[in-house]
Simulated scan of single mutants.
Amino acid sequence: MSALGDPISEWAGGFATGGLVHLNGNSLGPPRVDLTDRLAAVVTDQWTPGQVRAWFRDGWLDLPRTVGDKLAPLLGAAEGQVVIAGDTTSTTLFNALVAACRLRERPVLLIEAEAFPTDLYIAASVARLLGRELVVESRDGFDTYLGEHGDRVGVALAAPVDFRTGRRRDIGSTTALCHAVGALAVWDLCHAAGVLPTNLDTNDVDLAIGCGYKYLGGGPGAPAFLYVAARWQSEVDFPLAGWHGHADPFAMTPDFVPAAGIDRGRNGTPPLLSLVALDHALEPLVAVGIDELHRRTKELGEAFLAGLRPDIEVVSPRDPDQRGGHLALRLPDADAVEHGLAERNVLVDARPPDLIRVAFAPLYVTPEHVRTATEAIHSVLAPPN
């Protein structure tokens, strides 16, 4: 049996791929084949007979915590520190950033220039709202600024994987650098959760957020998750004080009293069906475990590189330990390449101006898919000179 063979390839048959090669799981991957059965059971066996009583009878109200605790091992977090807040990634990031800034009354909110655009937009909005100075630095400048002006930084927002190139930033050393100067570290795990060990507890992370629809496979618009280290949970003050984050939601009191622990990060009524879909998607990921998922992702990436024509420029680090779950190729007219691959049943995505991202979600991408993808890329591109 080869390193890229079974048994992990057997998981691929459990996904409804529609005969396509899904190399864009860093945006949206396929559902598991029995997802419709799970959702139908909730509608038929819980919602229909229970109606509003199902919130209590079938555990619906507890799902944000239940699913959060199921996700926690993939993030390297102990129970009681992750909740599916029921919001979009943008809303959850806003909530986390404001809360972090309230814990550190310092003038600067620091972020990398290469951050995902939403992170830049939200950070700028938070800075305006709280009267903070937003400092946007290059990747290397981020560390330099912390070293030279760290006493001014209240919160630093970073991501362990560059969404364009896949290049990694080390969570442990960056968080330690933040803490050495008295700043808090907030992490965006959207392009890491499900393929990369993040070890949030071991790395002493303060707060983190991430989406449910990329490598976690929760489906389009799946709700985001929120991590708050246990040491901050009695102090953290979220700006979005929804009734489900109240200590006694059904008391309907006029004043907000935050719930104990991670539940104070909840807001409005949970998006039940989306939570069920995310819960369902997490089952095989948790069963395999993050270390095996990461190993498989690296091996698939290495196999892809081995089969790629040497004249194609690879922007991502060649060292698999220095990148996340995807590789970025620099190709002229990347949009046309993306469409050409789609016509050959290979799904990737383009990022302007000239990058193609190829992602290796470990449970439904197989060595055969990798070979198909490299052959398709070569057929789309003009022959080398």
Results as ranks from 00 to 15, higher is better:
376 A>H: 14
162 D>I: 08
212 G>Y: 01
236 V>G: 00
319 D>V: 03
14 G>H: 09
88 T>D: 13
297 T>C: 12
300 L>W: 05
23 L>N: 10
27 S>W: 04
3 A>G: 05
162 D>K: 06
116 F>C: 04
48 T>K: 10
338 E>D: 13
124 A>H: 15
115 A>H: 04
93 L>M: 11
220 P>C: 05
14 G>Q: 08
279 D>G: 13
1 M>K: 05
158 A>K: 01
173 S>L: 09
293 L>N: 02
336 A>R: 14
327 L>Y: 09
238 F>Y: 12
43 V>G: 07
125 S>C: 10
334 A>D: 11
216 L>I: 06
186 V>R: 03
291 D>N: 00
321 D>H: 07
308 L>N: 10
167 R>E: 15
110 L>R: 10
18 G>A: 14
199 N>F: 01
171 I>A: 11
126 V>G: 03
320 P>F: 05
82 V>I: 13
265 G>S: 13
180 A>Q: 11
41 A>F: 06
260 A>N: 03
352 P>F: 13
318 R>E: 08
108 V>G: 00
161 V>R: 08
53 R>P: 09
212 G>T: 08
309 R>I: 11
61 L>D: 13
257 V>A: 14
359 A>E: 07
4 L>P: 06
36 T>W: 07
160 P>Q: 04
138 S>G: 12
110 L>G: 09
224 A>M: 04
231 R>Y: 01
75 L>T: 02
3 A>W: 03
229 A>D: 13
341 L>K: 10
195 V>Y: 03
130 L>P: 02
262 I>G: 00
369 H>Q: 09
370 V>P: 09
155 V>Q: 10
48 T>R: 10
301 G>I: 11
265 G>A: 15
92 T>G: 03
32 R>C: 00
7 P>D: 06
191 H>D: 15
275 L>Q: 06
90 S>G: 10
217 G>S: 04
127 A>V: 09
96 A>I: 03
136 V>N: 05
367 P>V: 12
159 A>N: 03
277 A>Q: 03
375 E>M: 11
31 P>D: 09
225 F>D: 08
155 V>K: 10
335 D>R: 14
240 L>M: 13
118 T>K: 11
301 G>R: 07
364 Y>R: 06
230 A>L: 07
30 P>W: 02
159 A>P: 00
300 L>N: 07
381 L>D: 10
141 G>V: 08
225 F>G: 01
107 P>Y: 00
371 R>H: 09
109 L>H: 06
22 H>A: 03
11 W>I: 00
292 E>K: 00
294 H>C: 12
130 L>K: 09
252 M>V: 11
352 P>R: 13
193 A>D: 01
125 S>G: 12
19 G>N: 10
171 I>N: 06
43 V>I: 13
12 A>I: 03
68 G>S: 06
277 A>P: 01
261 G>E: 01
182 G>Y: 11
25 G>L: 08
97 L>M: 03
350 A>W: 15
104 R>C: 02
189 L>Y: 01
110 L>A: 12
58 D>V: 09
293 L>F: 05
317 P>N: 05
33 V>G: 01
170 D>C: 09
21 V>H: 14
199 N>D: 15
27 S>Y: 02
40 A>V: 05
6 D>K: 07
234 S>G: 06
93 L>G: 02
